[in-house]
Simulated scan of single mutants.
Amino acid sequence: MIADFQPLGTPQTILAGLVGSGIARSRTPAMHEAEGAANGLRYVYRLFDTDRIGPPRLSIGDIVSSAENCGFSGLNVTYPYKLAVMEHLDHLSENAQAVGAVNTVVFREGKRIGHNTDHWGFAESFRQTLSGATASRTLLVGAGGAGVAVAFALMDNGVEHLSVYDKDPEKAQALVQAVCRQNGAGSASVTDDIETTSRATDGLVNATPVGMDKLPGLPVPHACLRPSMWVADVIYFPMETELLKAARAVGCRVMGGAGMAVYQAVRAFELFTGLSADADRMSSRFAELGE
């Protein structure tokens, strides 16, 4: 049992959910419910897909309030709400403050507490999937809620310089400033020319929604891909995004979004329940669900 934590409601019942846009194919509910059952819990996990709610379309604030009022233990938060949800919370955990984005909200003792489990989820997946890969110079595409978590995870995994691209230059600049504050001046920079930047990088991470079922396509020009580089994508539905297919065809070493999805869920489960999760068991359940 994790010390000093008791989930809301009875010890046998947990109600949790995931808020996002276009998440109908998410494997998160099945992972959480199976792990809950394995721990002897009555665990119910629901999706709040804002593409399917309404009209009128509910705001992230409305959904957080409704879940809290209905006795939820917590919510996971995904695209496009990881930044927007922060203004509806009472407190941020240390890691959420450091990252500047929230993907997990815990309702506890009348407070809404924001956490970030994406940071550890990506870092752990990278360590296991791309072990030994050189990552001293890395290109990150996307500076939104997923991108900020990935940026700090990459720095923790030994990246010496991070180049950041976002279609919104202000977002990219804000992330670069945050990375430099924590890792030193010159540790990150904004790029507006990803083709040129990619030629001098060891690897590339897509942290944009481009490649999801609802937003198919390549997030970078095909010319950015070289056989000597590794390519990672945070998306897992579909499992094989167009970026990963193109990278494999070129000869790149690749990492999909499955690992990040599993490991962030491991930490979120522990936050919701106060119990330790079995990462191997959750990973197996994830794989069983197929495409």
Rank of each mutant, 00 (worst) to 15 (best):
H222A: 15
V254D: 03
S228D: 14
R253K: 14
V231D: 12
T191I: 08
G203R: 07
A277E: 03
P219N: 03
E240T: 12
R267M: 10
Y263G: 02
A174G: 04
A185W: 04
V254S: 03
F286K: 03
L204R: 10
A249L: 12
Q173A: 15
H161K: 14
G259W: 04
W230D: 02
C224M: 08
L225N: 13
T196F: 00
D192A: 15
P221M: 01
D280Q: 15
V254R: 05
D168K: 04
C224S: 11
D193Y: 00
E270V: 12
K245Y: 00
V176S: 03
P219K: 10
R226V: 00
D168V: 09
E170F: 05
G217C: 02
M229Q: 15
P227V: 01
P209V: 06
G217E: 03
S228T: 13
S276E: 15
N206K: 06
K214R: 12
R226H: 14
A249S: 15
V220Q: 09
V210T: 12
V164C: 11
E240K: 14
D168H: 01
M229P: 05
A188F: 06
E240D: 15
S198W: 03
V179I: 15
R226I: 00
S163Q: 13
Y236A: 01
I194V: 15
E240M: 10
R253H: 12
S228F: 00
Q182P: 00
D280K: 11
E240A: 11
C180Y: 05
V210F: 07
Q177T: 13
D280A: 15
N206D: 01
I235D: 07
P219Q: 09
E170W: 00
R199Q: 14
T273W: 11
W230L: 01
Y236G: 03
K214F: 12
F269M: 08
P238K: 11
A200F: 06
G203F: 11
T196L: 08
L162Y: 04
R226Y: 06
V205I: 15
P169W: 06
T241C: 04
P169F: 05
L243I: 13
K214T: 14
E170C: 01
E195N: 09
D278M: 05
D193G: 07
A188R: 05
L275G: 13
Y263C: 01
Q182I: 00
T241G: 09
T241W: 08
A261M: 11
E160H: 07
D233G: 12
K245H: 12
R248N: 12
V164D: 09
T201H: 04
M282C: 08
N206A: 03
M255H: 10
N183P: 00
G256D: 14
K214V: 14
Y236R: 10
G203T: 07
V176T: 12
P227F: 01
G251E: 07
C224E: 09
S189Y: 07
M239T: 14
V164W: 06
T208C: 02
S198P: 07
M260G: 05
D192L: 13
E170N: 08
D202H: 15
L218W: 11
V190S: 03
T208I: 06
N206F: 05
K171C: 13
R267T: 11
D202S: 07
